[in-house]
């Protein structure tokens, strides 16, 4: 049974290998750091599994790491997609606005639903829910842009956002709905989290399994032939 809980670790190792093969640390360095951190965190949790105090400490330290890296990855995704679209001044305000909205929603939720956690653990949990909100905002916002602008959806930033978006949506749903189940909550939450995260990692592996096609015209192509140029000139003349 304990083996099943480490399925995401195996998938994450596979993801890390795929990322290295695609040299994606050059395209999405924060996501690469996130994947490497996730592998290290899961190995640390596995190593301390039988020692409760060490496991507890490892768990909360790695959760805080996930929070910070989760935010950084969302910033990277948003910057990559919006940076290609517009250089308008207000595009730089989108991420801070999303971040404030996420933190606001998480704090508001913490006020409505009392937590059994206290101290630093409480803040890490609030941060985690804020990250989930940010991930859903960024994912759903970007997906909304696909039909509106005709963006290509099969590109690495969209893949990263889709994995996080799916996981965050399921976890927000689980956190909101499963609390109604009382003592069965922990078990359901654990299994849902495991399945959703495994699906998210599979999505990332699928997106990174193919090389990213050039989104901009390739300048390394050989020059057009004289015939092509003549045709092109004729076409432009007719256009005017």
């Amino acid at each position: 049974m304990i083996f099943l809980t480490y399925i995401p670790l195996l998938l994450l190792v596979l993801l890390l290998l795929t990322l290295v093969r695609r040299r994606s640390f050059k395209i999405v360095p924060c996501f690469f750091a996130y994947a490497a951190f996730a592998v290290a965190a899961d190995i640390a949790r596995f190593a301390t599994h039988n020692h409760h105090p060490s496991y507890r400490l490892t768990y909360w330290v790695t959760e805080a790491g996930y929070d910070v890296l989760g935010m950084l990855v969302m910033y990277e995704v948003l910057r990559k997609v919006l940076g290609d679209l517009t250089r308008a001044w207000w595009s730089r305000l989108i991420f801070p606005a999303v971040l404030i909205a996420g933190i606001g929603m998480s704090v508001a939720r913490a006020n409505v639903v009392p937590s059994r956690l206290s101290g630093i653990e409480f803040y890490i949990a609030v941060g985690e829910i804020a990250v989930r909100f940010v991930q859903v905002f960024v994912f759903a916002g970007l997906v909304t842009l696909v039909p509106l602008l005709g963006l290509r959806w099969r590109q690495y930033p969209f893949g990263v956002a889709t994995g996080f978006g799916l996981y965050a949506t399921v976890m927000l749903l689980a956190t909101t709905k499963f609390s109604d189940f009382g003592t069965r909550f922990k078990l359901l939450w654990g299994w849902t989290s495991l399945v959703a995260y495994s699906v998210a990692v599979l999505i990332w592996i699928w997106f990174f399994s193919v090389p990213q096609k050039a989104s901009t015209p390739n300048s390394e192509l050989s020059a057009a032939s004289a015939g092509d140029l003549k045709q092109y000139k004729d076409a432009l003349r007719r256009m005017r």
């Binding site: 859903v136 969209f158 949506t169 749903l173």
Partner: peptide, 15 residues
């Protein structure tokens, strides 16, 4: 929260 979850679910279906 429910609105955001619904938005996220619709985005998942679209993808």
């Amino acid at each position: 929260t429910w609105l955001i979850v619904a938005w996220g679910a619709l985005a998942c279906i679209y993808m």
